[in-house]
Amino acid sequence: MRPTEFDYFAPGTLEEAIGLLKKYDDEAKVLAGGQSLLPLLKSRVTSIPYLVDIGNIDSLTYITKNDRALLVGSTTKVSALENYRNFGKNLAILKEATASIADPLIRNMGTVGGNIAHGDPGNDLPAVLMALDGSVTVTGPEGQRHVRARDLYLDSYTTVVKSNEIITEVQFPDWGTRSSGTYIKFKKPAGDFSIAAIAIQLKVNKDGLCEKFGSAVASVGPTPIYLKRSSEAMVGSKITPMAMEKAAEEAAGEISPTADRDGTVDQKRDLVRKLFIEGTRKSLRKL
């Protein structure tokens, strides 16, 4: 299968890349690893006249830390993040989520920024970034701006990133002591997208009360969904089985799944309810 014809640019700097995006605007799209975009172009689900490949901009490939977050350059390969050795317990969720994406060959080519920018509701890193309350740096002709992951997604394949902007960095916050989380992907065969997946991150204080809680889901709505009501319900009290049940019930109501060959709407709500409890238990065990 071949994509429709397009012009291709491989700028060596971010400035050149943004210049090209500005010039061709709606007709141009950023190509990073291409592991989501190329299948869409090959099957001609979409066609794009101008591709701007940011894969040769070395300054966008890095993994580094500051005191608040793990900072990942957007063209860092998913496998590079997966093999990062210093996640610790606080960011264990990232190891689980990256290792669950597609298959090792796709992860060797696909990028962290691409997984987040593409906007496929089945992608895994958006839910993680939302649960952690992380953010992205977006660079465009007017300079840089920061967008909270929870404000990033508008609809399927649609984000607040404009056609002349590029996600240049992804920030995964470190929640500090007594925090941990997990990513559970309920999926069909190896390599497939999930039927539903949940990202959970929690932090407790010295007395065992829940200090912070973030949860988000993939594949059960037009976008990844931050479970606002259920996350907020967990904060401020002990994480008891009853509290989990109650918040999980809330979570099942916060999603907007569609019925398909993988299940009915009710089955998917029930699945998310169970994943919420399982994920919370698993995260607690890791503390």
């Binding site: 291709y8 291409g34 592991q35 190329l38 299948p39 796709i106 060797n108 080519m109």
Partner: peptide, 9 residues
């Protein structure tokens, strides 16, 4: 790195 050459330009 091993990659799928049908999904690389």
């Amino acid at each position: 790195k091993a990659v799928k050459s049908c999904t690389v330009l």
